[in-house]
């Protein structure tokens, strides 16, 4: 009998059973499948049982007593999906977010997500809203979406099962690719870019990898149901993934002071989230912030224009001058170049 069919038969049998079903009975019911040697049959059933548990089938083995015999039994109430009593608004939010993620082409756990949306919609009838919210991935070229999507799916499974992965990684900072073994701790989305955070065996520490820069990916297939590693209890994805360029952890934190004036002053909080702001003369705003990638901040300041000034430290001011001078050199008129 085909495995899918056998497992469904088991579901039907167990859902209908009023008494625990013993292993001997199961062997009787499925002689062609659980016949043969004791060992082989038991191993086959163990695999089927693991699959049932993975599907959320609440199967338990009960030890018999005076009133009940030994055997497998399923808690029916814990099996069937109950109504979640979601309000129209709650359902709309979950649906909007879920469909946006599915429409985005790449979201880890796409299969899981599609099933989840189906299930929460089960009791909703035909009235489900289909909002048009879409998320496009940055840094993913046409034709590459499928690859990124497939990698995210593999990584999601590896994160969930805590299995290590082997990756070939192309960092823009290095001319050649590197091979690494990584314990995947989790996946984070920032500005349309998916990042894998995990323990890198090559570097012996926590590292982040942009999923679109992973050229090859293999998940450890040995002992699929036994985790390869533990995620440290105090691990948090958010503290390892940068929202803004100056948050990349390239050097020790430095406090930088900026002064925003004109139209930028009122936008200070949204431009520099997390900075400590204080009003200064002429309607300006002074912002203090911790920076772990100074060049990232300096480039952002140059982009903002003359209404954003770096007040300190001197090293940051010097960097602004260096970059601006370099830009000027590259854009000076021919006669200016001569005089310079």
């Amino acid at each position: 009998m085909e495995r899918t069919e056998r497992i469904l038969d088991l579901v039907a049998l167990l859902l209908d059973a009023r008494e625990p079903i013993s292993w001997a009975e199961l062997r009787e019911h499925f002689p062609a499948d659980y016949g043969g040697s004791d060992d082989a049959a038991e191993r086959k059933f163990e695999r089927d049982k693991a699959e049932l548990v993975e599907l959320g089938f609440p199967l338990t083995y009960v030890q018999g007593d005076d009133e009940r015999r030994d055997g497998y039994i399923v808690d029916r109430d814990a099996y069937y999906l109950p109504e979640a009593d979601l309000t129209k608004e709650e359902l709309a939010v979950l649906y909007a977010a879920g469909s946006a993620a599915l429409a985005s082409g790449a979201f880890p756990g796409r299969d899981d997500l599609a099933h989840a949306l189906r299930k929460i919609g089960f009791f909703a009838g035909e009235s489900l809203p289909t909002p048009r919210v879409r998320m496009e991935l940055g840094a993913v070229q046409e034709g590459e979406e499928k690859e990124v999507s497939a990698r995210l799916e593999q990584l999601w499974d590896a994160c969930a099962a805590r299995k290590w992965v082997e990756i070939t990684y192309a960092s823009p900072k290095h001319p050649t690719t590197t091979h690494r073994k990584v314990d995947p701790y989790g996946l984070a989305l920032r500005r349309g870019v998916w990042t894998l955070v995990g323990h890198c065996h090559l570097r012996g520490g926590l590292r982040t990898f942009h999923v679109h820069r992973i050229r090859e990916l293999k998940v450890n297939t040995a002992r699929p149901r036994t985790p390869d590693f533990q995620v440290p209890a105090d691990f948090s994805l958010d503290s390892h993934v940068a929202y803004f360029p100056w948050q990349h952890r390239f050097h020790e934190p430095v406090e930088v002071v900026l002064r925003l004036s004109g139209a930028l002053a009122s936008r200070a909080a949204s431009l520099l989230p997390g900075a400590t702001l204080e009003p200064v003369e002429e309607g300006g705003v002074r912002a203090r912030m911790k920076v772990t990638f100074l060049d990232g901040l300096v480039r952002f300041c140059l982009q903002l224009g003359p209404d954003c000034r770096v007040e300190g430290p001197e090293s940051a001011q010097a960097r602004v001058k260096e970059m601006a001078t370099r830009i000027l050199e590259r854009h000076a008129e021919a006669h200016e170049k001569v005089s310079a």
Binding site: L55, Y80, V93, L94, R110, A116, F122, M135
Partner: peptide, 21 residues
């Protein structure tokens, strides 16, 4: 007559996607 409850993976994927909004 009713589907199984959500698995941990299904619920986690749904909750994570909800973070988008």
């Amino acid at each position: 007559f009713a589907p199984p409850r959500l698995t941990a993976g299904e619920a986690a994927a749904l909750a994570a996607s909800a973070e988008l909004l």
